[in-house]
């Protein structure tokens, strides 16, 4: 049995399974674009840029300090994590506990089933981010924004009450585009492993707690620190090493694959 057939099946079923959730998710993105437009109306700048919009979506949160007292929860950051967790967490679990038994006996190999689900999860994450960036790009274009990765300190001040001396374009590309995608792929796999070992709810909650706790800690093992632009600037004073980030994320991914294989091999399909 060729794995290509299994992947084709998972892509078809998985996307059908998630289509309504995906529409809602993209609605969330669009709503935040509109909200961004409302915010910048009150800011004294000539023209916002695509960079402003990307920073707005992937800024995350500045470093937490218990002294400052007021520390609003980053809604967009959490929104993205919740969306990815909802898109990924339930299909493999539902599949293994229902329809998937028919697939197992036909594909004859538990590892192939897992590999196919991993491929599906990567595809789903990529598709979601592709849609997200397409919306951002189109929105910026239609709104007449400057289509560069430049940014305005005034907008960051308006949305975060902090003044950031400089954000490199490479930081926007790495921490605002590449790392969110890579992080979502890795965290999805971890969520699939936890779901298969326990259940979908525990998998979802574990990931949510991990992502939530990361808001308050600047430890490099809370991987979502790498996807917060504000934590990777001169302002934060804790700029994360990009190379180190990639190595840690890749290592976690490989470990998760190995654990996933062990879990699926021992899984009792009752």
């Amino acid at each position: 049995m060729k794995i290509a057939r299994l992947i084709k099946y998972d892509l078809k079923c998985g996307f059908a399974y998630n289509r309504i959730k995906l529409v809602i998710a993209l609605g969330f993105i669009l709503a935040n674009c509109v909200y961004f437009n409302m915010i910048i109306e009150g800011v004294q700048i000539d023209n916002a840029s695509l960079g402003d919009l990307i920073i707005y979506f992937f800024k995350g949160k500045a470093v937490f300090s218990s002294k400052t007292g007021n520390f609003p929860i980053p809604i967009i950051y959490l929104g993205f994590q919740i969306i990815v967790a909802i898109l990924i967490g339930y299909y493999p679990y539902d599949d293994i506990n229902g329809y998937g038994k028919q697939i197992f006996i036909r594909c004859q190999d538990k590892r192939k089933w897992l590999n196919s689900k991993v491929t599906w999860s990567i595809s789903t994450v990529l598709f979601f981010y592709l849609c997200t960036f397409t919306i951002l790009f189109l929105f910026a274009s239609i709104s007449g924004f400057d289509m560069s990765l430049g940014y305005h300190k005034e907008i960051i001040w308006e949305t975060n009450n902090i003044e950031i001396p400089n954000i490199e374009a490479s930081t926007i590309i790495f921490n605002g585009i590449l790392m969110p995608i890579v992080y979502s792929i890795v965290i999805s796999l971890i969520q699939i492993c936890i779901s298969l070992g326990t259940n979908a709810i525990i998998g979802f909650l574990t990931i949510m707690i991990y992502d939530f706790v990361a808001i308050f800690f600047t430890n490099k093992f809370f991987l979502s620190n790498y996807i917060m632009i504000l934590r990777n600037t001169e302002y934060s004073g804790v700029e994360y090493n990009k190379f180190e980030g990639v190595i840690i994320v890749l290592a976690v991914y490989i470990i998760a694959i190995l654990i996933g294989r062990m879990i699926i091999n021992k899984k009792q399909l009752v």
Partner: peptide, 11 residues
Amino acid sequence: MLMRAISGLIS
């Protein structure tokens, strides 16, 4: 359970 055992769904 016996059916699952024969199907390989449980070990």
